[in-house]
Amino acid sequence: MSSRLSEFLAGCRDEAPLQLGVVPFGMLYGIGALAAGMPPWLAQAASAVVFAGAAQLVIVQMLAAGAGALPIGLTAGLLNLRHVLYSVSMAEHVRHLPRRWRMLLAYLLTDEAYAVAILRYQSRPQPEAGPDNRHWYFLGCGFTLWSTWQLSTAAGLLFGATVPAEWDIDFAVPLTFIALLTLLMRERAGQAAALVAAVAALALAALPFRLGLVVAIVLGLLAGVMAAKRSRP
């Protein structure tokens, strides 16, 4: 077996266990998109065009709450800003690749693919002899995640159409946010960011188009930065 193929398959294999967490997310997104009144074809296309789980869930949740395009776009844009950090971290490993490779890998650079691929780059140094095929491993990770995301979106769209509205199945979306929040709030800075953002979101609820949400997130960010500065010796 060629070294490229074996690297690709190793990436697929190592990414596989994470799909247990991705499948419910993708299904939830599909179910939530239907509940928010999104046409199924568009919900499925968004999984390919946006390809960012948390942002897609946020878009669906805000649509259901009747938010306008500007606040939804700003919130999703803020939420996805973290991908710049992944891009920074990956840059040194993929710098030597041709542009088409870098564009493809950038498209596949999600939370879960990054988490697995960066470990490979950090734990296996560049081979001294022979070609460096670690980008095939990265491609395997990204391909696995991409396929699961598309299939679980489709499953959610099919399943969501059969669930009655009074089951409140879309409540699972804020429940997911709550679960992620508790994991993110172990640090003092995270607690400050979350608390200020939550209180500000309610205090600014009267702003039109749910713009209060965007302002609340920005205030939360600033609170997090200030708390991190204070707790540093």
């Binding site: 949740q61 939420l79 950090l85 804020p174 946010f177 800075a189 979350a194 949400l213 997130i217 960010l221």
Partner: peptide, 29 residues
Amino acid sequence: WLHALCRHIAPASFAALTAGELFIHGGEV
């Protein structure tokens, strides 16, 4: 500064969204 800001995006976004979902109905708290 961008590096410092990025670390707090997830908790701030999820908290603001959850608070809105639970307590804001039709633009009112």
